[in-house]
Design a protein around this nucleic acid. Structure first.
Lengths: 338, 338
DNA sequence: TATCGGAATGTTACCGCGATCAGTTGCGCC
DNA sequence: GGCGCAACTGATCGCGGTAACATTCCGATA
């Protein structure tokens, strides 16, 4: 309680406890041999003073920073908090700590955030996506630390990568939909040219449809606003425009849920008259009147695997660096099974 | 591309550009007078080498760290990402940068996270809640930096605070419910003794009911799982146990939405037979078949105000440090208006 | 022409800590 | 009693920058 404005240093604790700064340092880090008596003296003094070590100085001196930069496009997507939670869970058992940066899906902002984070000399980087500016890629290369690119595996990583193939996810969903006999398929998504994963899903999706001579009969994109409400509105708009649609593929579960609620209200037979599918497998949707067909994006597992790779590499342990997880389709109640 | 493992320093840039390290430092920070010619030389060299400044060293030398610690209980609550976004928005216009720590509603983890963050000597702290361990409070006090406690204003802050009165929020909702003529009121919430804000809302709620001689006829608490699904289940359970319930107050919108969906499916008249209200005003719910009554928690504004206070104090600008925002009740379609 | 002043650049002294190496004890043992 | 080793403690240096002060250079001024 009694401290001047200047913040405390090892020296203060050392003076208060009558030992050298070095010994205080050892006690506080649990390194090397210190007698129980001295240890107690030091700990008491430190606690009494309310001393908090200065990691800045520590990091500079030891050339070690126990931070892992985690760079993601958004926090409001629900997907990323889940990935984060997987990362945290694994890092909790190590001395490493995640630090999050958000890019808002903007490449230039990503570059800025990356620069900022690298300037703290973290022990590793986990970054969403495989698409980065050339400068970002160069920084990652030059950083000399382990880098794991997550979410997506359709492309070439700088170093390691963990994710699913969104192209394949799109393909599989298309195949399932065709197999169930739907023919007039619409696609509803986000207006985000920079969301490469959504784009790849769409590409995979149309690719398979095309092979069967099917084309997406209608599509609509939104941005901003409540996803649930947008799902509703877009679904309504599509049905008005293309009343013969018999399947709607949504680029995420949230708008899918909005669509589902809308159709049920209108008394439309789901999945008889119209089938639906989303993407992500968000837990939240378990409470819907009907279970939306979706595809698990392995969010948590992506986080844990990525963190494990970082943790291993930081300790110079070799570890497979290209992990492609297999998303599983969940038919729910809105996509006729085989 | 051509770099050894050792990371670059000012010296490398200085040698590459033929000027002193000090001059390089000045160029890179845009400080002091440097001739255009030298500036160009330095910038070129820096870019060519791919030099990224070491903030650790810089921070140690300058005793300035442009980080603001933001400590929140959870990221999966949707409430906090929104607060965060308010914070980021304001800090974006300053040189400050938020760094997030998550406590999982555990006081000891909060203490640990706080300690960890303070050891990086941030310029300010924004921390959720007014309840902290004694040690945490001591650390905040001793840190000598601006501290803003957010979300809640029912209590005494260490320094500054921004939020709403959850007690009052509970009271107002109770008053509105009574005024609308409901009598058999149930409460459904989370099993989180450590969520002090939910607790305070509940206290305010029952306090007002008590004044009118009304008691909560039933209550139920959940933990874990999909909030939407839990809202469903709990609502079902309550109706079974207490069929004469005519109002259900949910501690958050998500479970409220689950309850709403359940009741609508059962063909129960909402708000005729049973009225509903939640808490938070989450945007997400705008897509529900009926608009759930709720109360806006001013999440984004809490973030911006808190960040503004930090930004002001960091620059030694005086600024009112006790901000109580007024949440507004939104009747929606599930609470009869007056 | 000698002096002055400001712009441009360099030098020095740390910032707070940890790696390293150098003592200093105490103790068992021959 | 002296030796060797283990257990403990301390002194020094430097991590990569920046603040503060010192210096150089040059044109303007009297």
């Amino acid at each position: 309680m009694t401290q001047k404005n200047r913040s405390l240093t090892l020296r203060d604790v050392s003076e208060a406890s009558g030992v050298s700064e070095m010994t205080v340092s050892r006690v506080l880090r649990n390194r090397g041999d210190v007698s129980a008596a001295t240890r107690d003296k030091v700990l008491t003094a430190a606690k009494e003073l309310g001393y908090v070590p200065n990691k800045i100085a520590g990091a500079l001196a030891s050339q070690r920073v126990n931070l892992v930069a985690v760079i993601i496009p958004s926090l409001s997507n629900m997907v990323f908090p889940e990935v984060l939670s997987g990362i945290s869970q694994v890092l909790e058992d190590t001395e490493l700590q995640p630090v999050v940066g958000v890019t808002d899906y903007l490449p230039e902002k990503e570059e800025k955030v990356l620069y900022e984070m690298l300037s703290w000399r973290p022990s590793g980087v986990i970054i969403a996506g495989l698409e980065h500016t050339e400068a970002s890629r160069a920084m990652l290369n030059a950083s000399g630390i382990p880098v794991v690119e997550i979410m997506d595996t359709d492309g070439d990583p700088v170093d390691a990568m963990v994710g699913i193939s969104h192209r394949r996810a799109g393909r599989e969903m298309a195949a399932a939909i065709l197999k169930a006999g739907y023919k007039k398929i619409a696609f509803l998504g986000t207006k985000m040219p920079l969301d490469h994963r959504a784009r790849k899903r769409f590409e995979g999706f149309t690719e398979v449809l095309a092979k069967s001579g099917v084309e997406v009969v209608d599509r609509e994109f939104y941005s901003g606003g409540s996803a649930l409400a947008k799902g509703r509105e877009m679904t309504e708009a599509v049905l008005e425009r293309s009343p013969d649609v018999d399947f709607i593929y949504y680029s995420n579960d949230m708008i899918g849920a909005g669509g589902l609620l809308y159709l049920l209200e209108k008394g439309i037979d789901v999945p008889g008259q119209i089938g639906l599918a989303g993407f992500n497998g968000v837990e939240l949707l378990q409470g819907l009147p009907r279970q939306l067909a979706t595809m698990d994006a392995c969010r948590r597992e992506i986080g844990t695997k990525a963190a494990e790779i970082i943790a291993a590499r930081v300790n110079d342990v070799e570890k497979e660096g290209q992990v492609t997880l297999a998303p599983t389709i969940s038919f729910g109640d809105t996509l006729r099974g085989v």
